[in-house]
Structures are given as C-alpha cells and as structure tokens.
Amino acid sequence: PESADLRALAKHLYDSYLKSFPLTKAKARAILSGKTGDIAPFVIHDMKSLTAGEQLIHCKQVPLLEHRQEQGFSHEPNDEAELRFFQRCQVRSVEAVREVTEFAKSIPGFVNLDLNDQVTLLKYGVHEVLISMWASLMNKDGTLISYGQIFMTREFLKSLRKPFCEMMEPKFDFSVKFNALELDDSDMALFLAVIILSGDRPGLVNVKPIEDLQDTVLQALELQLKLNHPESLQLFAKLLQKMTDLRQIVTDHVRLMQLLKKTEVDMCLHPLMQEIIKDLY
C-alpha cells in the first residue's frame, strides 16, 4: 500500500480507538502526573482506604452497581476484601472485552473474516490487548482503576493474601518496560490491531487473510513509528518483541485464573471470562 493509504489506516484505527476506549493513555498520564486540573484520584493504600474507595465508587455508580447485583457479579459487603476487589476487576474486565470487541470490528476487513476465526482472534488476543492498555494506567508505584477515579498502590496489591498478591506484579514489571517505549494513543491503536490480527493463534481456519490484514497494519505501524518517533531507533523492532512478553504474561495470568476458579469456592467467574479462559493455554 501507498504511504497515504497507510496513514489513512492509522487515522481510522486511532479514531475507532478513541471511540472504543473511554480512558485514553493521554488522559491517564495527565491524571498520574497531576496535570488534569481536576481533583486528584482517591488513593487506596490499605484496607481502610479500600473501604472508603469502595463507598466512593458505590455513591457514583449506584445504577450500574444495582444492575450488576441483579446479575450476581457485584461484590457483597461481607465478602473478603480480596474477593470484592477481584469481582470488581472482573466487572471492569468484562466491559473492557466488549470495548476491545468493538475496536476489533472496526479494523478494516476483520468482520469479513471467517466468524470462527474472529472468535479465536478475540479469545486469544483480548487479554494481550487489555494488559497492553493497562500499562497506560500504571506507573512503578501503582495503577489507576475505576476509569481513573482511583489510584491503587502497588504495595497494597502486594499485601493482599495469596494468590491475589501475585496477580499484579508481573503486569507492573511489564508496564515499566513497555511505558519506556513512550507510545502514544495513536501508536497504541495500531499495536492493538497487530495483536488482534495474529495469524498463529491455535485453531484458526483461514490464516492467509488474517496475515494479509496484519501485514498491512504492520506497515502502517512501522510508518507511524518512524514519523511519530523519528529519534527512537529500532522502536518498531522493540515493540514487536513486547508481543512475546505479552504472551507469557497472559499464559501465567490465565493459569492463575484457572487456579482461582478451582480453589476459591466463594469466587464467581463471569461466563464471558469462563468462555475466554477455557482451553486457552
């Protein structure tokens, strides 16, 4: 494709990224660096502030929570803190999967792929996309949650009981390295599309059209990085290497989820998450 076509593709994917995902990296970095001019996020750093943070969110999101309670996926006040937190993460993750699906459907050619292959690409790609995007909300000390309203410290997450304390550390380690690449939202849009269009996912029926689509997006990404980061040598190659790290993180994450499903008798795993992690790795 000509450069102009590749730039048009980059613009299209950036536009649909902005439509699909409510909290951009630009907004998140502004919140994290205190440059929004808004009120700073509420900080959760111990069990007391966790309870206060939950009340804050409850006050702001009553209609949503009531809906979730009807569905049986909201936390119960008497549940253990770790379980309440995990259930909240799940509710957000399920919503995030819907956002990623909408973004995937906006990738030119995606909806024309074999429907089974669309399912496979999402099943395998969605956690890699979510973890890449989550890095935008993190710094070395903690992570924004609840659409940027709350900052939860890394130390607090490490203080949770096993195995919950083990869930986030690998994501923090990844985020510190990934954020060093200094991608912006327009770069991220292309990178996420590349992840989704991975032709080596197990069980794909018709690989060729997926690889062709990915090839075009890869060319658009390479051009984008050259134009947007002219000083950053080998950024394209460095970014592609991150895809290997992502696969390992997701494999470990999914194994942990599968373990939680077996060992945490009080834990309720959302049917969508069950669908995704079943027979995944």
Binding site: H67, Q71, V94, K105, K123, G203, P271, E275
Partner: peptide
C-alpha cells in the same frame, strides 16, 4: 467454536452488553 463461545459470538454479531447475552 461459536457454540462454545456464545457470548463472544453475540458480541461480534451485534455488540450487546456482555450481561445481556
């Protein structure tokens, strides 16, 4: 595959909320 992934399939087809499907 679509049978085993009804919610993902529905999201792909019509974009319903995951809790509605």
């Amino acid at each position: 595959l679509q049978e085993k992934h009804k919610i993902l399939h529905k999201l792909l087809q019509n974009g319903n909320s995951p809790d509605e499907v």
